[in-house]
Design a binder for these strands. Structure first.
Length: 308
DNA sequence: CGCATTTGACCCGCGC
DNA sequence: GCGCGGGTCAAATGCG
């Protein structure tokens, strides 16, 4: 249980307070200094991103100290939650991609699926039910392997936070060592396979962890607040997608935030942001990023959006 | 009646 | 091989 300092500046703060920030998977965030916001009844504590197509970036190099970006900081998860390839992969140089690692993983996975396919074919005549289950397993296994996940930690008294999309609950499970159950939701939109898990942190019952998996193939059905210049969600554009979800959290909670000290951070782990999902995409300039995402303009004061 | 939720059963991966 | 925990399914149930 180590702690490293991270300062998150939120507009409207009422002084500093050190909050222990734990994720629900049994690890501690590698940062813990958060300023309280007086603007909402809840505040964002952290964002986790652990994808399956990791690209390693040198964040301090990519992000200037004056950028206004949503908090998106990796933390170490146990092997079960995080694809081990992500955390174990050691980039030779900053910004090096590990696409080969991901593709290797898929190749292995394909072999596995072929085996399952064969098993299914062999048993189909005798036990169609078994085949069904095998096929289901294959399907879910594929998704589990491929879909990236982003987790949001928020303080809220409500478990299921409104994020602009419609969800159908398909399961609930008790979580080991936690009095709080984990709920499983699927996007109700047809052909959209996005899922999310919602659970309350057992270390901090006031914290709700929402984990999104996959990308919406459709825009949010919720009409944005009037007067907003919100950019539509581009199907397949995961950065925009997640940013949209993320910003919905902020909008709902009327939370203004800003991080302008990212360059001062020291990451104990190799940063494993998939480049395309990094909120501040190095491929685009900060100005372009801010211009293209109206919501950020909505939650971040205009003077903070000016790029130097 | 249609849709959402609940909940027990089932499957899978993993550790021992 | 077995047990455990996580994730999913699907029938039953609830609700507007």
């Amino acid at each position: 249980m180590e702690k490293k300092d991270m300062v998150v500046n939120m507009e409207g703060t009422i002084g500093n307070s050190s909050l222990p920030v734990y994720n629900p998977f049994g690890n501690v965030f590698d940062f813990c200094e958060v300023e309280k916001s007086s603007l909402g009844f809840m505040e964002l504590l952290g964002v986790q991103d652990y994808g399956n197509s990791p690209q390693f970036l040198d964040l301090p190099q990519q992000l200037s100290s004056t950028m206004s970006v949503p908090m998106m900081v990796p933390y170490e998860t146990n092997g079960k939650e995080c694809n081990s390839e992500v955390l174990n992969h050691q980039p030779a140089t900053p910004n090096s991609s590990s696409i080969s690692s991901a593709s290797t993983s898929e190749a292995v996975n394909d072999e596995h699926n072929k085996a399952i396919d064969q098993a299914g074919e062999e048993e189909e005549e005798e036990e169609p039910n078994k085949t069904k289950k095998l096929l289901k397993a294959k399907k879910t296994n594929q998704k589990r392997q491929k879909e990236p996940r982003v987790a949001f930690m928020t303080k809220s008294e409500v478990d299921h936070l409104e994020d602009g999309y419609r969800w159908r609950k398909y399961g609930q499970k008790a979580v080991k060592n936690s009095p709080f159950p984990r709920s499983y939701y699927r996007c109700t939109s047809a052909s959209c396979n996005v899922k999310k898990r919602v659970e309350r942190s057992f270390t901090d019952p006031s914290t709700v962890v929402t984990t999104y998996e996959g990308h919406h193939t459709h825009p949010s059905p919720v009409i944005p607040r009037s007067g907003l210049t919100r950019a539509p969600v581009t199907p397949g554009d995961s950065a925009t997608d997640y940013l949209s979800q993320y910003q919905h959290h902020h909008r709902q909670q009327q939370l203004l935030f800003n991080i302008n000290t990212l360059s001062t951070l020291s990451f104990p782990y190799n940063t494993c942001f998939p480049q395309e999902r990094l909120v501040c995409n190095p491929g685009a300039t900060t100005a372009a990023f801010l211009r293209d995402h109206g919501l950020l303009q909505d939650v971040v004061p205009s003077h903070m959006l000016k790029e130097e």
